[in-house]
Simulated scan of single mutants.
Amino acid sequence: MSKINRQNTNAILSNSVEYHNFVYLAGMTADDLSQDVSGQTKQVLDKIDAALEANGTDNTRLLSAQIWLKDIRDRDAMNKLWTAWLPAGGAPARACVQANMADPRHLVEIMITACR
């Protein structure tokens, strides 16, 4: 049986799960919730980079992304950072929707699937 590797696990989730060279990240949110959507997006992308690196991969190996915004009108500001972060020609399959967040101070949450 193949091993499932989980990182930063608590009672309700793992920060990441790796199985058969596929890496599934939990939804990532900002730590400093006083920031605007651009500041929070930067924090989230930094957290994604760290989680991917911890699993032996990076943003050149993205397969899919799910993005939740508290206010869909923030999409352009978030996309400015998102597109600068993506490698040329490396955009994943993606969904981006407006959502009620668990904490109303969260403005963006991003969940990634990648491969190694």
Rank of each mutant, 00 (worst) to 15 (best):
E18R: 14
K42L: 12
M28V: 15
K47F: 14
N8P: 00
I12S: 10
D49E: 09
L52G: 01
Y24M: 12
Q43L: 03
N8G: 11
L45M: 03
A50R: 11
T29S: 10
G39K: 08
T29G: 09
S16A: 15
F22K: 14
D31H: 14
R6F: 12
H20P: 00
D31Y: 07
Y24W: 13
Q40R: 06
L52R: 02
Q43H: 02
I12C: 08
Y19D: 05
V44A: 03
N21G: 14
T9Q: 11
N8I: 01
M28Y: 09
T29V: 14
L33E: 06
N8S: 08
V44T: 02
G39Q: 06
L13F: 13
Q35M: 14
S14T: 11
H20V: 10
Q40A: 04
T9L: 13
H20S: 14
A51R: 04
T9K: 09
L33I: 09
A11P: 00
K42I: 13
D32L: 03
T41K: 00
L13A: 12
H20M: 14
S38L: 07
Q35G: 01
K42N: 14
A26G: 08
Y19G: 01
T9R: 09
T9M: 10
S14K: 09
Y24K: 06
E18I: 09
N15H: 13
V37L: 06
A51V: 03
A50E: 12
Y24H: 11
S34V: 01
I12V: 14
S38D: 06
Y19W: 10
D46P: 00
S38N: 04
E53V: 08
E18T: 15
D49I: 07
S34Q: 12
Q35K: 15
I48V: 13
L52V: 03
S16F: 05
A30L: 05
N21L: 11
S34M: 02
A50D: 10
Y19T: 10
M28F: 13
Y19E: 10
V23E: 08
F22V: 14
K47C: 02
A11G: 02
K42E: 14
Q40C: 05
S38W: 00
Q35W: 01
T9V: 15
L13N: 05
V44E: 02
F22Q: 15
A50K: 13
T41Y: 01
K47G: 15
A51S: 12
E18F: 02
N15K: 15
V44N: 01
L25D: 12
K42M: 07
V17S: 00
L33V: 07
T41D: 00
K42H: 13
A26Y: 01
H20L: 15
A26S: 15
V23Y: 09
L45E: 02
Q35V: 02
V23S: 06
V37C: 07
V44F: 01
N15S: 15
A11V: 05
R6Q: 11
V17Q: 04
V37A: 09
N21Y: 10
T9N: 00
T41V: 04
M28C: 12
Y19A: 07
V17C: 10
S16P: 08
K47D: 12
T9G: 03
Q35P: 02
L13K: 08
G27S: 07
F22C: 10
A51F: 01
D49F: 07
E53N: 13
N10T: 09
K47E: 11
N10D: 15
Y24R: 06
Q43G: 01
L52S: 00
V17D: 00
S16T: 14
N15Y: 08
A50I: 10
G39Y: 04
A30H: 00
V44L: 02
L33A: 06
